[in-house]
Design a protein around this nucleic acid. Structure first.
Length: 566
RNA sequence: UGACCCGUGGUGUAAUUGGCAACACGUCUGGUUUUGGUCCAGAAGAGUCCAGGUUCGAGCCCUGGCGGGUCAACCA
């Protein structure tokens, strides 16, 4: 799996700053020299390419240091979480090539321990029940520039706090009427240390614990403790949690009873050009019907990329290429596209297909004759063998492979010009047939019988080689060309801009009547193809259509951006 | 008028205990080729946010600026 591919590429596996931290910890003999990471998604949406970076990082670190990685669902907020998401997340992690073994955890499994820990804090005078409403508490918290003031309920007796928290727990109070707070420091320069709320009343149905609980722990009160109980050594998260770290450490200090302690390390999340990466906004795209579900091939979700034709290996390689830092940057999506081209170029079978057919009649080829030509399946890999391609007197070529008045650097077909039909003969265009509106309907050409197999009778060379299919044999199919969902380079993922303004109206083009080589019917096992000169495609795994449906994974080159500039 | 974090070619990252700023993507040029792809060869492009300081020597250490990000959900 992953380890093979990373080891084989020396470019990858560069050390990053997290390796440096871990190396230092190991050198000091911390935590019995264990390395144990975790991937902790909240099951409130599908995983996207940003999560893939985190997955590759966490599992990759454990692989490198001979440690383990847990999968943990951070399900402390029942109002947002659903079982559907849990299942999709597990599928996606597996598809990416990683396995958590028997280490599947849910924060909700720790609710009893968390609750007991809260009671311990109350008994130690380190937590209290606050009766004020959200607005009042917020006001008393102050601002980053101005320190907060203490709640009038801050110094309730332990006995009263215990009683109130117990009654909160059994549902005696309304939502929002009381919270449990840690007693830390209302004057701290760090807002998160100003008596953070650790339990709130929520009478919601939880996807796993049902209606058992009326109080739920906050993220800050659950995450580090779960790390601790699972034996995590390095808790790797994104930069916005940096200011939470003192609180993370504070809770661990209250909890720990040995030398072992987990440590939070932050890295910068992935930002991609032309890509929206916030779950909230992706959910909006799905709910408002701008795309056909979370796994729409235009989505940056792992499942979308899979349907689009991305391979797990290409995503892992991408993740290694972009590295891990604390710099808040913007990665060009062409780097992701390069990764999949790089992989598919080596592995994808070449096939000929014509998206926009123009009929060519070869006038000197007998109408009732046909023959079999031999084509290479992958010029990079001889072991993939050859295949038979039928040829006859009528073929389709790509409409834009012909120009009536070719410009200077156009090497393909035009009146009186000669090109090679790939794997076949040289043909020369003698006549252009048009309908009454002047649209070209077909070409009449002659072929050179001596030119089969790359040769020519007199040694002449042609610069143009075009792909084609035999009109009599070709299979009609449907092709879906996907472009970027957004035309603006950076529809800011995490700020409140109306990203819909930037949506690309042509992000999906369905081309219904394409023609492809007939062999495809018998090649269900192969799912990635390079259609010669058109790009990489995969058979849509979810298609229910009679005829084959292909999604374009990525163009041969990054032509989209270039076309936009013009 | 706070605290914390971050500033290296267009982009993403490297640079042993300070030692000629390296790699990949992208761009451009040429070659091979039964695809304008692939492959091969080559080029341009930063002197490391700025200003001082320490040092024989600073991207790396120190000081002071500047710029960007994060933090004021009973979200994670």
């Amino acid at each position: 799996m992953a380890e093979n591919n990373t080891n084989s590429n020396p470019e990858i596996k560069k050390a990053n700053f997290i390796h440096a931290h871990i190396d230092a910890d190991l050198a000091e003999g911390k935590n019995d020299c264990r390395v144990h990471t975790r991937f902790p998604p909240e099951p409130n949406g599908y995983l996207h390419i940003g999560h893939a970076k985190s997955i590759c990082l966490n599992f990759g670190l454990a692989q490198k240091y001979g440690g383990k990685t847990n999968l943990r669902f951070d399900d402390t907020n029942p109002s947002k979480e659903e079982t559907e998401y849990v299942e999709s997340i597990m599928n996606d992690v597996h598809w990416l090539g990683f396995d958590w073994g028997d280490r599947l955890y849910y924060a909700s499994d720790s609710f009893p321990k968390l609750h007991a820990f809260a009671i311990k804090l109350i008994k130690e005078g380190k937590a209290y029940v606050d009766d004020q409403d959200a607005e009042t508490i917020s006001e008393q918290k102050g601002t980053p520039q101005k320190s907060g003031i203490e709640s009038p309920f801050r110094n309730r007796s332990v006995q009263e706090n215990l009683d109130l928290f117990q009654r909160m727990t059994v549902g005696e109070f309304d939502e929002g009427s009381k919270v449990l707070r840690a007693k830390i420091d209302m004057t701290s320069p760090n807002m998160h240390m100003r008596d953070p709320i650790i339990y709130r009343i929520m009478k919601a149905h939880h996807h796993r614990t049902g209606d058992k609980w009326c109080v739920y722990p906050m993220y800050d009160f659950a995450h580090g403790q779960c790390d601790y109980w699972e034996g995590i050594t390095h808790s790797i998260c994104t930069l916005e949690f940096e200011v939470h770290r003192p609180l993370y450490d504070w809770f661990i200090d209250q909890l720990k009873d040995s030398d072992y302690r987990p440590r939070q390390i932050e890295f910068s999340r992935l930002n991609l050009t032309y890509t929206v990466m916030s779950k909230r906004k992706l959910l909006e795209l799905v709910k408002d019907g701008h795309v056909n579900g979370w796994d729409d091939p235009r989505m940056p979700t792992v499942s979308g990329l899979r349907r689009r034709g991305y391979t797990p290996e290409s995503i892992r390689n991408f993740s290694d290429k972009i590295g891990v830092t604390k710099v808040d940057g913007m990665t060009d999506v062409s780097l992701l596209e390069f990764s999949v081209r790089e992989h598919l170029n080596k592995t994808a079978q070449r096939v000929m297909g014509v998206l926009d057919p123009l009929k060519v009649i070869i006038t000197n080829y007998p109408e009732d004759q046909e023959e079999i030509l031999s084509a290479v399946n992958n010029p990079e890999d001889e072991s993939m063998g050859r295949r038979d391609v039928p040829f006859s007197n009528e073929v389709y070529i790509e409409r834009n492979d012909f120009m009536e008045e070719p410009p200077r650097k156009f090497f393909r077909l035009g009146p009186g010009r000669e090109v090679r039909l790939r794997y076949g003969y040289l043909i020369k265009c003698n006549e252009v047939i048009k309908d009454e509106n002047g649209n070209i309907t077909e070409l009449h050409c002659t072929y050179d019988p001596e030119s089969k197999g790359g040769k020519s009778s007199d040694g002449r060379k042609v610069k143009g080689v075009v792909h084609w299919v035999s009109a009599k044999h070709a299979v009609k199919s449907e092709v879906r060309l996907y472009d970027r969902l957004f035309s603006d380079e950076t529809p800011d993922s995490h700020k409140d801009v109306d990203f819909k303004e930037f949506m690309n109206p042509d992000s999906l083009r369905i081309i219904e009547n394409c023609y492809i080589e007939p062999f495809i019917k018998d090649s269900k096992a192969l799912d990635h193809f390079q259609f010669e000169r058109l790009g990489y495609f995969n058979m849509d795994p979810d298609s229910t259509s009679e005829k084959p449906v292909f999604n374009r994974t990525v163009a041969l080159r990054d032509s989209w951006a270039k076309a936009q500039k013009k």
